[in-house]
Amino acid sequence: MTAGEPATLIAAPPGIMEPLPAQVLSVDKETHDTFTLRMEQPPGMAGFRPGQFSMLYVFGVGELPISISGDPEHPGELTYTVRSVGPVTYQLVTRQQGESAGIRGPFGTSWPMAECRGKNVLLIAGGIGLAPLRPAIYHILRHRGDFNRLVILYGARSPKDVLYKKELAAWNLLPDTQVLTTVDYGGVSWRGYVGVVTTLFKFIRLLPSETATILCGPEIMMRYAIRDLTARGFDERQIWLSMERNMRCAVGFCGHCQLGPYFACKDGPVFNFPQVKPYMDLYEL
């Protein structure tokens, strides 16, 4: 722009700067505190890629970033898996069918599905971190011929905290697909593994050089998991993870989610590990 030239306002696409109202289609209980909401996709809102998130707004209460957990190739609706831990999430999970909430988005970077093509894909999820990985799983299963072996390792706190139980069991029956679930503590009725998610690494048979790894879960879990993976010969450059920090504006304006030179909301949440490696151990960040 030169001196004297009038400023031009560029309109943001619908649903980026202001929330668009959307109806709740269904609310399904996953665990004692976690629910999956299917919502209509507001008209004009762009489709999403696996790994992206929305800002969900309960009018008069507040707004939160929530990862999209549904099928990216199922147009017309958006799915979110939400753990009820505060006022906004409580209001979201207690919505009734036909009630509405506001949606902004979709925002952020996505899982590297193109880079995973032709390779084995190792997905490592912890707790609610399985939700942002589910769209990637749907994508891989829909385009199965493009990917080699799929291994899903999932760690949860206890058997009652395991998400998507039926889907995990169904995926494990698919050819070239292995699903292993472990819990930190189990009762006598739990017949699966007990121990942290890294204890499952010994059961996977994947050639590190031919494997792309995607992680989502508590940061400390990802840190330990990556340490183990690299010790086993996995290439750091073939590891991607989701860094979900304190996203507020979701468009890189407010700076709340700054991570070194990056804003997690717009440069992430999905990062290639070497990008964020220097910042993962810093207490101040």
Binding site: D33, R83, V85, G126, G127, I128, G155, A156, R157, D161, D184, Y185, G195, V196, T198, T199, G217, P218, E219, I220, M221, Y224
Partner: peptide
């Protein structure tokens, strides 16, 4: 090491 990691209770709502 696994026990220490387990003690962190990383999947709780307090997130470790």
């Amino acid at each position: 090491r696994a026990t220490r990691f387990q003690m962190l209770d990383v999947y709780s709502s307090r997130g470790g």
